[in-house]
Design a protein around this nucleic acid. Sequence first.
DNA 1: AGGTATAACGAAACCGTTTTCGTGTTAATA
DNA 2: TATTAACACGAAAACGGTTTCGTTATACCT
Lengths: 341, 341
Amino acid sequence: MKRKITLKHIARELEVSISTVSKALKNSEEISRDTKEKIQAFAKLYNYKPNNIAISLKNKRTKNIGLIIPDIIHHFFTTVFRGVEKYANMRGYNVIACISDESFDKEVINMEMLANGSIDGFIMALSAETQLKNDFNHLKEVTEQGIPLVLFDRITDEINCDKVIINDEEAAYQAVVKLIKDGRRKIALITTESYFNVSEKRSQGYFRALREHQIAVDENLVLRLPYQYEEEQQSAEFFASREIDAVLCVNEIFAIKCMRHAKKNGYSIPEDISFIGFTDGILSKYSTPRLTAVAQHGEKMGEVAAQLLIDKIESEVDEEEETFKTEILEATLVERESTIN
Amino acid sequence: MKRKITLKHIARELEVSISTVSKALKNSEEISRDTKEKIQAFAKLYNYKPNNIAISLKNKRTKNIGLIIPDIIHHFFTTVFRGVEKYANMRGYNVIACISDESFDKEVINMEMLANGSIDGFIMALSAETQLKNDFNHLKEVTEQGIPLVLFDRITDEINCDKVIINDEEAAYQAVVKLIKDGRRKIALITTESYFNVSEKRSQGYFRALREHQIAVDENLVLRLPYQYEEEQQSAEFFASREIDAVLCVNEIFAIKCMRHAKKNGYSIPEDISFIGFTDGILSKYSTPRLTAVAQHGEKMGEVAAQLLIDKIESEVDEEEETFKTEILEATLVERESTIN
DNA sequence: AGGTATAACGAAACCGTTTTCGTGTTAATA
DNA sequence: TATTAACACGAAAACGGTTTCGTTATACCT
């Protein structure tokens, strides 16, 4: 077993001081050509690589970023992860990924674990429970310690930091407008039971579209489902008992499940009923019929978040009076088979 | 901004030595009750938390593990990640996740980046390119340095380390036997073009099942597709031009795409043709018809891999004469709508 | 009184780097 | 010959902890 070699070993072996070795390997002008060549050759021979931990301790920079996402079953978050990882890697950073499992406690624990020196900054989307409790002290503590934080998608106004979101309200609005233009009038909204800022925004867009097109809102056409629901009776009953000619779902799993119920109740898609879902994930692409979806561009979102974060980490801005941006990405409607034309 | 407080700060403030503070916070018997209480109270008040990096440097343990996966679009790998993260967290470890993107170079770069002190061990599945090149020097170097390594799913015999796999050959065999028992005779195999140890094993199981049931192998019924294929003409033509009554696919994306082609060619599933796919991922659950699949239990696999790794990290085995295990997990067939009964 | 045990704390080494600030040697200059 | 500048290198502090090994001071024993 070839143990890792350190500066000390090289110094001892070549009978010079540690500082000389360090400088020689950095090609410092201070050291003579001869010595530098000797040391560099030796280092290459024994495959010397500086110890990251020691360097981190020295310059108080880990080159790690912490990513905290609520879950990994929603394809959107995995694509964000992809984007973060890709961009971070490009800039020489590694990603420590944690899954909060939609739990407030796990979110707190993960943050605390990482906040003690393991990372240079955080990227995160709030867990369901955190949005519910409306408790952001863990975020406050972190930012007060001067650790940069970027929130994406599931954000809050309570915290002052960089943010990346899509124009959820507008995207939902446009989606519903499309349905209306296709001649649909009985448009249902399927959203989450508990509070998410994104569901909320999307619902607002839905209502605005109806309002602006003089279509009365029918509360019977709004279905609120538990976020991770297994029991499907609510949605099954919904489609069995109402007249609906279009549906907007705030995520793709809702959409896929509901298309099934619609089909089971004799609807044919998209002739009798249109479906549009949020999050253009893997399910949308492969469902039958393929789902028309609002693409959230998760990968792009991840890249932007990572860029904001790393820029902040590497900028030497004077503590106070720093300024925070909120990047709003454009969602786009990907038309497939579940809507007309 | 409240900067992080260190032992030194506490020591200076309370006019004791750093060592005393350190010991007091560990509740050492060496320190008097009075001093301990005073120090502990002060530490709590200022929310002292030891710096992870410093501790890592001291005990040469980072409590991080490196996970390298080929991609994140195949649901299987994200579930493995889930399992690793969950188990690792339980044991107080964090996961640094890297995506090799099926590229040899990225795999090498990622490993080298992490191998210099950032992690205590690796968990990984080989990239497609690595399996193709058959070049495992980066793995050898890492293990020679005494860094524990656990390979899962995409493994190689060339490297001596702990491994976690499923019984791919047997699972494929059982799947095909089920098809035969259902009365199928013209059973197609859809596998990857390039070499993967898993595809290979699964194919072997397919052939063995046919052989043992006296069904002649028809090479026309074996389709080899590029791993990440977008062009679908090959598979479309396959279903247009052959008589097939059952299909075994080595991954779920192949299966979903091929079910489409089959339907388009007038087959009805499962009456005319049965489908079984590998990897019981999210697509299998939500496809129409729902896909009968061989569950690889990715999450379990991740947990087992993480356990093997952490156990090895924390065991103080004498360098030489250590022993490596290969855990073989049982795959199970999840029967859904794409097969009879 | 002399010796010893014990309690309570501090000094210093160490982990592996980087970096500042000497210091000794040689060569050039006055 | 004395001074100085340049060169090439080393010592030591620092990052933030842990841990070993003293070192006092006091109490106890004979």
